[in-house]
Amino acid sequence: MSKSPIHPVSSLDRQSELENSPAQLISLDRVSFGYSHKRLVLQDLDLEIKQGEFLTLLGPSGCGKSTILNLIAGFYKPLLGRVTHGGEDIKGPSARRGVVFQSNALFDWMTVEQNVGFGFRFQAVSKHERKKRVETIIALVGLRGNERKYPYQLSGGMRQRVAVARSMVVQPEILLMDEPFAAVDVQTREGLQEELLKLHEQVSGAILFVTHSIEEAVFLSDRIVILDRNLGGIAHDIKIHLPEPRYTAMNRVSDAFNQYRTDLYLKMKAIE
């Protein structure tokens, strides 16, 4: 991984670090996708995601954001072109690529602990190590004391925390998040965003995030890709430079933040 765990670096360092890192993790090469050849959702799309990068996809509804995520997850196969992970074609879902769904997709019949530890059932990790890692991540997402609770005993925000922890604890090389915080209230949402940034700092790995919210995109991302409507492909590819640590509340109200927001808002308007 290009990132070392826990490093208070400045934004420029972080961007140049990503810049200098030649390691492409995910690559979409002239990808076309549609449910039939007559109705395409994506056409000739090129996109690359670097190791450790936090990339957000923005764009009008129906522009294919979720489709890209599903292609990388291995849920869909491209009609044309290649989707590769570390140079190899993606043939189906894999534990190397975690997914967090908007619906959280938790297992209602398992406790928080069992949900979070689910991925370890299929990995050669010692019981002791497993327990330690589950405990650590539950503490990291602020759910200590809720280990034995079931999802139906938790609030929407807490459930989404469990879902994030469950995907992150097995340390996927990339975490794919499809509007994960769309269904929770604004305050919970901000808390979740800050925790996600902290987790991203501690657990190495890239994140591909899909959202409708410009603020969310600016606050979280190293890079934002805006997709055009009508198979237009990538309209804009913008790097975000904000001071580290990224998760401070100041980053939501700074001039730089507002500038990015205005700029992105106008760009989105131009597309719609």
Binding site: F75, P93, A105, F107, G119, A163
Partner: peptide
């Protein structure tokens, strides 16, 4: 059975 729960299990390495 909700499809997303099955997909979630797949992405966690379940056969």
């Amino acid at each position: 059975c909700p499809k997303d729960k099955i997909l979630a299990a797949q992405t966690l390495g379940a056969n």
